[in-house]
Design a protein around this nucleic acid. Structure first.
Lengths: 339, 339
DNA sequence: CTGAAAGCGCTTACAG
DNA sequence: CTGAAAGCGCTTACAG
């Protein structure tokens, strides 16, 4: 028997029409149990698999979901988080019987948009966007097509108001960290963040600062680029103002660890002299010395809900009933040795 | 015009047969420039994309490559490395015009092997295996099918002798670290590794130990599980024997960082009291305090060569000429503050 | 319950 | 250079 077995080969062996083979292998109720079992046995013995292209062509679906990553994924700096997310997506999408295709959003204006290409060529049934600034033209086409899509991780922007979104409550995460430190009787705080407007980081910062101010705390705000080395530099330049405070919030784990490194090198004891907290619950945060207090974004929950929502959309794709759900996840304080 | 444009729609508008449309859009030399340009313009105006399933069906190819990850990918412990690899694969596969599909190798005996399923259903044109112990049954089927495949990262085992492989010279990496420490006049060394047989880690260890012994050094060998917390425990239990040596090699960065954490907590100065080196050049190694001397596996080179080799196989798939190449990459010493 | 037939959207020999 | 036709491997009304 050749490598390429089709339902016609099975039909010959089972002495039935290939329509019947198709029905049997698709578990149609229109076939007798006896015929069905005979066909299934033969197919199994031959290690038969449906040709996905033929099926996709006639059914107009691919059983694949694309995860769109931003170009930033290329920079390790702020995005080790994304790498970790991938394994969750793979696990869950796999369990649901879909394929996971990875796509990169190109950031230049692209006439030849890879996401739209995949939709139009029927390579995918649904889309997950894990990008901060989705291409607007792409958004408008997806919206017009009513193509199943969900946006994850980033807080919603006005352009996303017609879409399904799932993200974490960053404001609340900031507040949790502030509460934690206030409970430990800190009064003077340093926050290490970035001035450039970014909704997610803005909310982290605002949640923290609002809460601190509400309790009469004092904040020393420092700005740096959102990468380790820039944060190191910033801390070294501002070591004096930092040491006038007793608690430091790095807007993400990497920034917090940079601060930890600089302070350690200056013989400042953590958490005794200065408490440090981060945000993301990255792998880094567990392995640092001391381990870092941080915020858990509830990644697995996010992925789980994201996929479930998307699959509902895919199953109802023809009905054009868009649930238009906005899911906001509760962040979790991870109390560790650094505070 | 409807959302689903086919070559027939274009044919009508261009007033040619749809064969001619197909030829024009595939840049066949059998069409006049005038006709071709007319057709191309119309297709562009309509944002036409070929139906990938129809094309895949007739051409018997999918333009997709699957990256097979091991179940271990689920554990963050030893595999943050894999997360970083992904971005390289995505970048390069994307550049070559292929789709990247992620697959998990199931470790139980699977009648319903997902990798074979993807091959037989024509969902993929080639395979990259990033798994330590590929399923033997899968290997034998792939071999029989002469399906394009390459195995990356792990040193070859006997079962892989008919396949293309690319990996780093782990023995040499171990030697580089030994040489580096010997040059700094260390004589007594601790190595933190795992006793269970694993070719890659065995080579790292052997490369290191052979070189040390050749120079008359003394080795204190400690065993732990290959994760951060087990390494921490091991170091705490063996702090006495460790402090009798002046240099420590953690078999990977995570192990080395665990040692760094424990030693710091015991007020042991790094690198003055004890030098520490790791292996992998993981993100963690750059951000630790002090930053960690380690071995760079030349990840980008590995991915680049891997994809190039695979695409050559895909292009020659019909010719059944298997190049059977074994590519061994040179490791690189990353000298940092910890040694 | 089963089979013959049409059709999904392409590519490509074949004929002109 | 162009078109009509066959066929890739399926699904599913339609007829019985």
């Amino acid at each position: 028997m050749s490598d390429n077995i089709t339902i016609k080969d099975i039909a010959k062996l089972a002495k039935v029409s290939y329509s019947t083979v198709s029905r049997s292998l698709n578990d149609s109720p229109l076939v007798s149990e006896i015929t069905k079992n005979k066909v299934i046995k033969i197919a199994k013995d031959l290690n038969f698999e449906f040709n996905a292209n033929a099926r996709g062509l006639i059914l107009s679906k691919s059983n694949a979901i694309a995860l769109v990553l931003s170009n930033k994924f290329s920079y390790l700096d702020t995005n080790s988080y994304q790498g970790l997310l991938l394994k969750s997506y793979l696990d869950i999408i796999d369990k649901k019987g879909f394929d996971l295709i990875l796509l990169k959003q190109q950031d230049f204006i692209n006439t030849n948009n890879i996401v739209i290409q995949h939709i139009k060529s029927k390579k995918i049934d649904g889309l997950i966007f894990l990008v901060e600034n989705p291409n607007k033209e792409t958004l408008s086409i997806i919206n017009k097509l009513k193509f199943p899509v969900i946006f994850v991780h980033y807080p919603p922007t006005p352009e996303l108001k017609n879409f399904n979104i799932i993200y974490s409550d960053y404001y609340k995460g900031g507040r949790l960290l502030a509460d934690h430190l206030l409970k430990k009787n800190h009064i003077k705080f340093t926050i290490l963040c970035n001035d450039k407007y970014n909704e997610e980081y803005y909310l982290r910062e605002k949640g923290f600062c609002d809460e601190i101010k509400r309790h009469g705390g004092i904040i020393n705000k420092l700005s740096c680029e959102l990468n380790f080395f820039s944060a190191v530099e910033c801390c070294e330049e501002n070591i004096e103002s930092i040491t006038k405070t007793t608690a430091l919030f790095g807007i993400n784990d990497q920034i917090a660890l940079a601060a930890m490194k600089v302070l350690s090198e200056h013989e400042i004891k953590i958490p005794n002299d200065i408490a440090i907290v981060g945000y993301d619950n990255s792998e880094l945060s567990m392995y640092s010395s001391p381990s870092l207090t941080t915020i858990n974004l509830n990644r697995d929950q996010m992925v789980q809900s994201c996929i479930e929502n998307l699959i509902i959309q895919i199953k109802n794709a023809n009905k054009k009933v868009i649930p238009n759900e906005i899911i906001i996840l509760d962040p979790l304080l991870m109390e560790r040795a650094s505070s």
